[in-house]
């Protein structure tokens, strides 16, 4: 496939071209920049929904259910499901698809599994670009499912228009400890597996933590109880996501978020490029020498820092 072919097929709605473009972007292939330029004009402002929460909370199952709701509402859907790469081998086992079977052969649902490839923020570095690619392809709603997170993998808020934090009754005890981080980023909180013992108590604990939170704007993050396995509570969650969309749209918050996202991405990209330019192979050699000097106690750590960043 030549680059022109690929783009033509992409804009013609060819799913294989979409898959290939995502790979090119994810692999930082030299062609990625020009493709991303080409599609930028075609961004249509898909609703980007982030789903995050601890491992095993039911994120994939909830996405699977929500995708169904979207389809019933006539919306086309893209899903980006992120799982961790091993820091030792670089390999990854991407298993979210196993739980996403409700709309499996629907041509208007496109699911892509991604590995973090060294990113620590709960998403993969290319996730934003991949969301752009899906947006330009014409997807109305894009779900971004993070890896199972603890307290600090919060990249999702800089990526999504709405962030859903999924917890389970067993998270109850740690909700207190999560006051900072995860408990601050949700626009909607979901207590999944709420048919389990301890759900009521956990629900109250989540509520009480949220009540202590300073309110920004008029939106008070609701807490919903779901049992994703049999679909309980999912319609309500879908409605809240729609409400939140309209709430943001009416107040221009969506375009504000878009601006912030653009600024953030440009900054990150520049940081990376500047570092790459500044850190030549020659600098790396010098750095290795200095490192040795530190270990041999010929220089102090601070002295070396000064050498590199005077």
């Amino acid at each position: 496939m030549t680059p022109n072919d690929l783009l033509k097929r992409f804009f013609g709605g060819d799913r294989r071209a979409l898959a290939r473009l995502i790979s090119i972007v994810e692999n930082e292939d030299p062609r990625a920049d020009s493709f991303l330029n080409e599609i930028y004009d075609h961004l249509k402002g898909a609703y980007r929904i982030g789903i995050t929460g601890p491992p095993g909370a039911g994120k994939s199952t909830i996405v699977d259910r929500l995708v169904q709701n979207c389809r019933q509402a006539g919306k086309t859907v893209g899903v980006i499901a992120v799982d961790p790469s091993s820091p030792f081998t670089g390999g990854a086992l991407l298993g979210d698809r196993v739980r996403m079977t409700k709309t499996e052969l629907d041509p208007d649902v496109f699911i892509r599994s991604m590995a973090t490839r060294g990113s620590l923020g709960g998403l993969s570095k290319a996730a934003q670009d991949v969301a752009d690619v899906m947006d330009a392809f014409g997807k109305h709603v894009i779900f971004l499912e993070t890896v199972g997170v603890g307290q600090s993998e919060l990249d999702i808020i800089r990526t999504a228009d709405a962030t859903v934090v999924v917890l389970v009754p067993e998270s109850g005890d740690s909700v207190q400890a999560m006051k900072a981080g995860l408990m601050e980023i949700g626009d909607i909180f979901v207590l999944n597996k709420s048919d389990r013992q301890g759900a009521d108590l956990a629900y109250l604990e989540i509520q009480s933590v949220l009540q202590l939170k300073p309110v920004r704007g008029e939106w008070r993050p609701p807490v919903l109880q779901t049992v994703a396995d049999d679909g309980k509570g999912i319609d309500e969650l879908f409605r809240k996501l729609q409400d939140f969309y309209h709430y943001q749209k009416e107040r221009n918050i969506l375009s504000q978020k878009f601006q912030e996202r653009v600024e953030n991405r440009v900054r990150r990209y520049l940081e990376e490029q500047i570092l790459r330019k500044y850190w030549s192979p020659e600098t790396e050699k010098q750095f290795q020498r200095s490192l040795k000097a530190i270990l041999e106690r010929k220089k102090s750590l601070r002295q070396v820092l000064k050498e590199f960043a005077p």
Partner: peptide, 21 residues
């Protein structure tokens, strides 16, 4: 698991898959 440990990205699609899926 072996392919993952060899550094590959493995999409595990699981049980009861039809050729179409």
């Amino acid at each position: 698991a072996s392919l993952r440990d060899a550094g590959m990205e493995v999409i595990y699609a699981g049980l009861r898959q039809t050729p179409e899926m």
